[in-house]
Nucleic acid binder design. Structure first.
Length: 633
RNA sequence: GACUUCGUAGUUCAACGGAUAGAAUAGAAGUUUCCUAAACUUUUGAUCCAGGUUCGAUUCCUGGCGAGGUCACCA
């Protein structure tokens, strides 16, 4: 309808305005609740063109549209806003067409270009935490939304399975894992620990031992004992000690930090880890076997977590397989002059003309840095999927600069698709106690958190009853659906770009603007339809629409445009807020309009069908958020 | 310090440059012989400060104050 009026105005721009008007000057918005009308046109731009008051301009446009648009029942101009009211028949037909369309809201499959969405991309040393949850739910939901908007979507992650940090946990496991009576070291199967948790434990253990050793070294240095320390390090240490004298506290702290770093490099543990990395790069069989074994433990652990989350991936990329790819590109770019080499052999790109800095792309020893492999991975992906048109990286906003540089480099290398790469930069998740810090043990573990919300849902659902006749299996599934639904909704309803506060208490709330509130509305409608299940098919016969019914239909009718808006803004939050709005609208309808006790059969089945379609959209919308909609709760 | 993001009820979140800034929660008051009260209905309460652009500014620009992030031959 909006489209129709817009076209009408554009086609008759000459006779109406006596001059050209731009597409952008036609601004529609939904009519305020307290004003009569279904759609509002902002008149101010036209008042200017017509050089009259907004009131007169509005009257003129309104009359013009009314003459040519039979769906229009009336119009009214208030304060420079032209409010159109559509006929009851228009709204009834709207309901009819929504009802006919089982996949209402979804665009034709594969009608839009293929997009790859990257999310999760964890470090194999650290179990998934709250920050990952936001990342993963966001990425998954966005993928679903893009699909619904007509795109073909490839969900992917790149697994950070290479580097010195991996060697740290491998080394710690070899050195510090206790040996049981059968002569085995700790494994997931003999400890019952999840693989990612076990490996994470040894990563922490490494850090602990490593810091202790560094401390010892400093203590040794302080007694003027430099046994086994190279003269270069001793000189540096002495220099720092001198620098400590007569400085303010802040400067002293900085120097102490430098000394700490110095001592860390002197630890045998770090040396051994570095040796291990060299062995790994040389494909030493024993090291490689350990690496494979431990990584597989982690993957099994992650898989379990992903399963609980209800997310999946279409294609995985491993850094260990892609880290070499970028290097060839750099060499090529060096030849074509995109990059330049410094005296020490390191390779850089100069982005000062773009307002950024110089950025290193290859170390002086020829090894790859972070961005090198990102360049390689991106190019690799486009060759894996020749019809791929763009990519979305779901990565935290602390990497804004990195992606700015990455996309710029890809563009300079001449890849046309670089401009279709988008960094879905999301804000950090804070706790009421402040930032999450692994050092201080304030990290919220993903598995623990999910268990917690499910437990809470279990407790409250049991309290309420309503579970008669449900099997144990059904109940457990229901608790999962409610708990996780609440958690997902809690994390998704906030604009991704913004940093958000995670309040553990609120995240398990079941009332208000929450996931279970939406699920509840769905369950209620299902129960309503079940009660009426008389065997006879419900038919939609024209009936007089009440105000609440019209408002509901209006709300339903905007679902498709919400999906495309959420897709083009990369924001599941828009969809979440829409669903909440719809459910509130339905709650009001449900409370004021009788349904099952309505005596008129046509009106009754009309209301049931309206309810059915609301449930349909709730279920569909929730599924795009990765949330399930139970039929009973 | 440079660059960058942000600042809205007590709290957590909304608001293509549009009408009287919406919700939730917390607080106060109500609704059940009737379709699931995880609901519904009332009600108290906010745009960091100072300028500017505009018919119109929470939104855009400038300055200030405050909070985060980035400035590694780490990833």
């Amino acid at each position: 309808m909006e489209q129709k009026i817009k076209e009408l105005l554009l086609q008759h721009t000459k006779e109406l305005f006596n001059s050209d008007i731009s597409d952008a000057s036609i601004q529609f918005q939904s009519t305020r609740k307290d004003v009569k009308g279904d759609l509002t046109l902002v008149v101010f731009p036209f008042a200017k063109v017509l050089q009259t008051s907004p009131q007169l301009a509005g009257e003129k446009i309104g009359a013009f549209v009314a003459d040519r648009c039979e769906e229009l029942e009336s119009f009214e101009v208030i304060n420079g806003f032209l409010n159109f009211t559509f006929s009851p028949a228009y709204w009834f037909n709207m309901l009819h067409s929504i009802n006919e369309n089982e996949t209402f809201g979804r665009a034709v499959e594969h009608s839009k270009p293929m997009i790859m969405v990257e999310y999760s991309s964890p470090n194999t040393n650290k179990p998934l935490h709250l920050g990952h949850l936001r990342n993963i739910f966001l990425g998954f939901s966005l993928s679903e939304i893009l699909k619904a908007a007509g795109h073909e979507v490839i969900k992917t992650q790149v697994i950070n399975d290479r580097g010195i940090h991996i060697c740290k946990s491998m080394l710690a496991w070899e050195k510090f894992s206790p040996i049981n009576s059968k002569g085995e070291r700790e494994t997931p199967s003999n400890t019952g620990l999840k693989g990612d948790k076990l490996v994470g434990k040894y990563y922490v253990e490494f850090d602990k031992q490593f810091n202790a050793e560094a401390k010892q070294i400093i203590a040794q240095w302080e007694t003027d004992d430099f046994d086994g320390t190279s003269t270069a390090v001793v000189d540096l240490y002495k220099k720092f000690q001198v620098a400590l004298l007569g400085k303010d506290e802040k400067a002293q702290q900085a120097i102490h930090d430098k000394i700490k770093d110095l001592s860390k490099n002197e630890t045998t543990l770090l040396r051994e880890a570095k040796d291990m990395l060299v062995k790994w790069e040389a494909r030493d069989p024993q090291t490689y076997l350990l690496w494979t074994t431990m990584n597989n433990w982690v993957y099994a652990g992650f898989d379990l977590t992903y399963q609980t989350m209800g997310v999946d991936f279409d294609k995985l990329y491993y850094e260990s397989e892609t880290y070499l790819l970028g290097k060839d590109i750099i060499v090529e770019g060096l030849r074509s002059g995109v990059f330049f080499k410094k005296e020490d052999g390191s390779v850089w790109i100069d982005l000062t003309a773009e307002g950024l800095d110089e950025k290193i792309v290859l170390r002086s020893d020829g090894t790859a840095v972070y961005i090198t492999q990102d360049i390689g991975t991106a190019i690799d992906r486009f060759s894996d999927y020749p019809s791929l048109s763009g990519m979305v990286y779901t990565v935290g906003n602390e990497q804004d600069y990195h992606f700015k540089v990455l996309f710029l480099i890809l563009e300079k290398l001449g890849y046309a698709w670089a401009k279709n790469c988008f960094h879905l930069s999301y804000g950090m998740v804070d706790l009421p106690s402040g930032k999450m810090k692994s050092r201080e043990g304030t990290v919220v573990d993903a598995d623990d958190l999910m268990q917690e919300v499910v437990d809470k849902a279990t407790e409250i659902t049991k309290e309420r009853g309503h579970l008669d006749g449900m099997s144990e299996q059904f109940r457990n599934r229901l608790y999962q659906q409610i708990g996780l639904g609440g958690l997902k909704y809690y994390l998704l309803k906030v604009d991704p770009k913004k940093r958000m506060l995670f309040n553990p208490e609120e995240s398990v709330d079941l009332s208000g603007n929450t996931g279970p509130f939406l699920q509840y509305a769905h369950a209620r409608i299902c129960s309503l339809l079940k009660k009426e299940d008389s065997g006879a098919e419900l038919v939609l016969v024209p009936f007089t629409l009440q105000h609440e019914e019209k408002e509901l239909i209006k709300c339903l009718s905007s679902y498709p445009s919400i999906i495309s808006e959420a897709a083009s803004n990369y924001s599941p939050a828009l969809l979440a807020n829409y669903l909440y709005e719809l459910v509130k609208q339905y709650g009001h309808f449900y409370q004021t309009i009788p349904i099952l006790i309505e005596p008129n059969r046509d009106v009754k089945s009309g209301r049931l069908l309206l309810s059915y379609n609301v449930a349909k959209v709730i279920k569909s919308g929730l599924s795009l958020l990765g949330i399930e909609a139970p039929e009973k709760m």
